[in-house]
């Protein structure tokens, strides 16, 4: 009888024929309710991405350290480790009493690493956020107005970019001092041109779209078009850019601290600690240097893992 599979198909169990709703009758194309929200899909992809999970776990650990260091640390940041028999325990290697060993002042390296998270996790995100904010404004101006505005800002940011980052930072810090605010502003200023360039290219392609023309035909102001029409459509770029910049900022802040540009050289800070202990490596005392360095590495890698998977999810 049946020659092809097609006609063998028995009618589906009588399914009530759903009459199209008035709205759906209007015209063709897939009905809206069938389309999964893109955001939900992106979120789903993100939480299933192993590199995002690892990155987020590591980052959450360091955030916890920054918020509640006392919960995890065995000693205070400046407390000297004293053994049961009242002995100072300076320069001793990792063991049961001091997990990561102690430094030359007898402080617990493990506890200093835990306390050190706070400084870097305040300075780096604020600096990155400031860079993204400034970069977004410049990028919007460049991409939207183009012409001489674009030329001018581009040339200036190229000039900034052509100088070695650390040299420039040192110059600024020498002139303005090394308060936390100056450090934040310096790092932000260093990153602004890069952010501006990324935002500019995103704005350029947005500004070609017809909704921008349509806004002009309504007589909207340039400011309105930039901030209300274009900006919401480039938030993906800003989010990714922020995460990437946080990673770089952690590194830059630590580098500056290592070079001695820090608001308080004795405060628990990974960069500080590396700077004050790295010469001991020659004396075979590696622990006061390696553990803060690993802390920096783990945080930077975690942030980059998050940035990568965010980028991937938002582009899908």
């Amino acid at each position: 009888m049946a020659l092809t599979g097609e006609n063998e198909i028995t009618p589906d169990p009588v399914e009530p024929v759903v009459l199209p709703t008035v709205a759906a009758v209007v015209d063709g194309g897939a009905p809206a309710q069938d389309r999964k929200s893109v955001k939900a899909e992106q979120r789903r992809q993100l939480v299933r991405d192993p590199s995002f999970i690892i990155g987020a776990l590591v980052l959450l650990f360091w955030i916890l350290c920054a918020l509640l260091p006392a919960l995890l640390a065995n000693y205070g940041p400046d407390e000297a480790v004293v053994t049961a028999d009242g002995q100072f325990l300076a320069r001793s290697g990792p063991d049961g009493t001091a997990w990561f060993g102690t430094d030359s002042a007898g402080r617990d390296v493990y506890s200093r690493v835990i306390y050190g998270a706070r400084n870097v996790l305040t300075v780096a995100p604020i600096a990155a956020a400031a860079a993204v904010a400034a970069g977004a404004i410049l990028g919007l101006l460049m991409g939207f107005f183009r012409g001489w505005v674009d030329e001018l800002i581009s040339r200036i940011s190229e000039a900034v970019l052509s100088l070695p980052v650390i040299l420039l930072a040192i110059l600024v810090l020498v002139v303005f001092g090394t308060s936390k605010l100056v450090i934040i502003l310096t790092v932000a200023a260093l990153f602004t041109p890069v952010v501006a360039r990324t935002v500019r290219s995103a704005v350029l392609s947005e500004a070609q779209l017809d909704y921008v023309t349509s806004a002009k035909l309504r007589g909207e102001s340039s400011w309105f078009i930039m901030t209300r029409e274009i900006l919401p459509n480039i938030t993906n770029v800003l989010v990714v850019e922020f995460t990437v910049r946080v990673g770089y900022a952690i590194f830059t802040v630590a580098t500056l601290a290592f070079l001695g540009f820090t608001s308080d050289a004795t405060a628990p800070d990974w960069g500080n600690d590396i700077a004050s202990t790295y010469t001991l490596i020659n004396a075979n005392q590696w622990w006061p240097t390696i553990f803060p360095a690993l802390a920096i590495a783990s945080l930077v890698i975690a942030v980059n893992l998050i940035a990568d998977s965010l980028d991937k999810a938002l582009k899908s």
């Binding site: 399914e15 759903v18 199209p20 063709g28 194309g29 897939a30 069938d34």
Partner: peptide
Amino acid sequence: TIPGNMPSIGTDLPTCVYVSR
């Protein structure tokens, strides 16, 4: 005009694919 929409990919189809329109 043809009212309604084409069934989207992967949905269960009625016996005649065009019946709803």
